[in-house]
Design a protein around this nucleic acid. Structure first.
Lengths: 184, 184
DNA sequence: GTGCTAATATATCAAACAGATACATCAAAA
DNA sequence: TTTTGATGTATCTGTTTGATATATTAGCAC
């Protein structure tokens, strides 16, 4: 992660669709994107400032835009779009999983099968709930695939559905194995 | 991540099997564990010091243990085992993905189908290579399942195999969809 | 029409982490 | 012989997370 910020590209990517405030960006990231990437105010606001200084984004509506309410919407510039394309065109990626569930599973020998089973079941419940949401997204996107952008959203959500179903399949197998081979 | 260190538990978990140096720990993490968790010297060494101060680990072999070579091996204490069990017994987990591939896919509309296809193919190659390694691990573990610890290692590796196969399945589908629906 | 609550919105901070690098020792190959 | 690569400890910078502080505004109850 260090030495190559990715949140920059998340922000630019979201702004490539429409102008947004920092708060809007946070909301978007907390939606479908949160399944594969996260963001916080702690890096969104500083990033917006940096990107503005670099000329990759611009304020599309300054302070006090009607009411006295402070609200700063940003939009992407041409250089911003170029930077986004450059990143997309670079094959190099870093994909990182940090699965505490698997960590607990790996060291499960220290706690015994009952506790491991309990942990797997908690994981299973969470995944089943998220899968429902993903399938809902997928169903909606299927209806609007003639829009080019939606093709990409659809593929992303499909990735989630496919992998979450594999997780559930594994959960069933794992539970069976742990129950069958009774602890001596 | 902040406010809840997990690397502590990785270190304790590894030391629960055998005494290790910081360097050994790094090597272990870079092996099978790296599929679902990572660690760096930058947090392993400070963690060992903290755990030692807390009495959860102890130096099992001090400096200059035969030759003049500096080598500090740590082993887990009873309190350390207790802390590990407490963590294992806590159902709360945070599972995080940070998939730059999916980020590029999600914003693929800005670059076009050819570039997105190229990125999917790079992902596919990487996953196919890693899957081979995972299957090799799995094959070896299948032979020694009578050891209780190996059951947990086996389940962890199985998780990897299962999900990586789902990734490849998705890659095939995604490539097909992107090629079929020719860009207008 | 006043007070309460939730959502909106900007902003900063400390802790945790990744990746790089520095430095040193040692074994084996070239 | 030297130089390469593995071992080993350690630190630094930049990035990210999660928490928190501070206001404003809209909706609702009373």
């Amino acid at each position: 992660m260090a030495r190559e910020k990715k949140i920059d590209m998340v922000v630019l990517g979201l702004l490539s669709h429409e102008p947004l405030t920092g708060y809007d960006i946070k909301k978007e990231i907390d939606g479908a994107i949160s399944f594969f990437w996260k963001g916080s105010f702690g890096n969104i606001y500083p990033t917006l400032k940096e990107l503005e200084a670099q000329g990759l984004v611009a304020r599309s509506a300054g302070k006090t835009e009607e009411s006295g309410r402070e609200k700063i919407a940003y939009s992407i510039t041409d250089s911003g779009r170029e930077a986004l394309k450059e990143w997309l065109n670079d094959e190099k990626v870093s994909n990182e999983l940090r699965y505490e569930t698997l960590l607990k599973l790996f060291f499960g020998g220290n706690a015994g099968r009952d506790i491991t089973l309990k942990n797997i079941e908690a994981f299973e419940r969470k995944i089943a709930a998220d899968l429902k949401l993903l399938k809902f997204y997928k169903g909606n996107l299927e209806k609007v695939l003639d829009d080019e952008d939606h093709v990409y959203f659809y593929l992303t959500v499909s990735f989630g559905v496919e992998t979450y179903e594999a997780y559930l399949k594994w959960c069933a197998k794992a539970k069976k194995l742990l129950k069958e081979r009774i602890k001596r």
